[in-house]
Amino acid sequence: MSLFWRIFLLNAIVLIGATALLLGPVTVSTPVLLTEAAILAVGLAAMLVLNALLLRIGLRPLQRLTRAMTTADLLRPGERPGVTGGREIAELISAFNAMLDRLEAERAASAANALSAQEAERARIARELHDEIGQTLTAVLLELKSVADHAPPEIREELLHVVETTRSSLDEIRRVARRLRPGVLEEFGLVAALKALTNEFATPVLSVQHRIDSDLPPLGPDVELVLYRVAQEGLTNVVRHAQAKTAHLILRRVPGGVRLRIVDDGRGIRGAAEGTGISGMRERALLVGAKLHIGPAGRCHPDSDADLELGITPGGGTEVCLTVPVRQGSH
């Protein structure tokens, strides 16, 4: 029965019942007596309450659908509303679920194309920085050193200062190029790349420690790149925003896949809005069917023994936790 006829019949039953009472034992005088007015008021209130109750029961599936519409987030795939209610409501919920499936698939495909283009552009910029600007600065550095060696003593110190500035700029360009294109990931694999990443982000005020299982399952290049980029963005956020003294990079084998955790002892998220960095991590997680959780340290996927050994305090700082499923025999 359609929604229209269900509501119509519910109201018709109530009105027919009221009419039958008026034609039967219930009579109304002219003018209306006080007792009769009270009876009519009570009857009207009862009809309204009954009608509201029946409508609330009939339209409850639409309320669940409304909540699902307002909370749907393509970057956080979640449960679908159950297909319940009458034929028309069930068809509406089914259509909404199908629309979400289609939008999530299209979002994943477009994100994959965008990230692939982004990685290609990063590789191009890294090559230009290394091959063109890097070589130019190297030539400038050699010329400056030659000039400084033959310069009079009164200007030699200034030239040596310029040499050191040029050398620092060259090192910075090489560091930026390595971040844009993780050559160590391509040449030496994920474990070596993550260890190099922790060394790169370590500073005199921030200690970055790593713990990586030695029995990781075979991971495809896409999964390795996602793990590396999420770790890179997580450590970048620690340096920029956390005001932490210690950060941990943990990559462990778990049933059905691997789990990457970036944990710090900083000031925490404190209700801050998610920026483009976190949105990028969520998009990358969707590419490999992974689940990304960001919250207080030790609460996403606590590992009590390891956390206790590493000195991770539950509830302190921030944790980025990426769980990646890995199929058996995948390469």
Results as ranks from 00 to 15, higher is better:
residue 3 L to C: 05
residue 4 F to W: 14
residue 6 R to W: 00
residue 8 F to H: 06
residue 13 I to W: 06
residue 16 I to C: 10
residue 22 L to N: 11
residue 29 S to T: 15
residue 30 T to Y: 12
residue 33 L to N: 11
residue 39 I to E: 04
residue 41 A to L: 15
residue 42 V to K: 09
residue 45 A to E: 07
residue 54 L to P: 02
residue 62 L to I: 08
residue 65 L to P: 00
residue 69 M to F: 09
residue 70 T to D: 13
residue 71 T to H: 11
residue 73 D to N: 15
residue 74 L to E: 03
residue 77 P to F: 04
residue 80 R to N: 11
residue 82 G to N: 07
residue 83 V to G: 04
residue 89 I to R: 00
residue 96 F to S: 03
residue 97 N to I: 08
residue 101 D to P: 01
residue 114 A to W: 09
residue 117 A to Y: 05
residue 120 A to Y: 05
residue 122 R to W: 09
residue 124 R to P: 02
residue 126 A to Y: 01
residue 127 R to P: 00
residue 130 H to R: 15
residue 135 Q to T: 14
residue 136 T to A: 15
residue 137 L to S: 04
residue 142 L to V: 15
residue 142 L to R: 15
residue 143 E to D: 14
residue 144 L to P: 01
residue 147 V to G: 02
residue 148 A to M: 06
residue 157 E to L: 14
residue 159 L to F: 09
residue 160 L to S: 06
residue 177 A to W: 02
residue 179 R to S: 11
residue 180 L to V: 08
residue 180 L to C: 09
residue 189 G to Y: 10
residue 196 A to M: 06
residue 197 L to P: 01
residue 199 N to H: 14
residue 206 L to I: 12
residue 206 L to N: 08
residue 211 R to N: 12
residue 211 R to G: 04
residue 214 S to G: 09
residue 217 P to K: 09
residue 217 P to F: 10
residue 223 V to R: 05
residue 223 V to G: 02
residue 231 A to C: 11
residue 231 A to E: 03
residue 233 E to D: 13
residue 233 E to N: 13
residue 241 H to K: 06
residue 242 A to E: 07
residue 249 L to G: 04
residue 263 V to P: 00
residue 265 D to R: 04
residue 271 G to V: 05
residue 274 E to P: 04
residue 276 T to M: 13
residue 280 G to H: 03
residue 281 M to P: 01
residue 283 E to D: 10
residue 284 R to D: 06
residue 284 R to E: 08
residue 285 A to H: 02
residue 287 L to I: 10
residue 291 K to L: 12
residue 294 I to V: 15
residue 295 G to K: 04
residue 298 G to L: 03
residue 302 P to L: 08
residue 306 A to E: 10
residue 308 L to N: 15
residue 308 L to H: 15
residue 309 E to L: 15
residue 317 G to S: 11
residue 318 T to V: 06
residue 318 T to L: 02
residue 323 T to C: 07
residue 327 R to M: 12
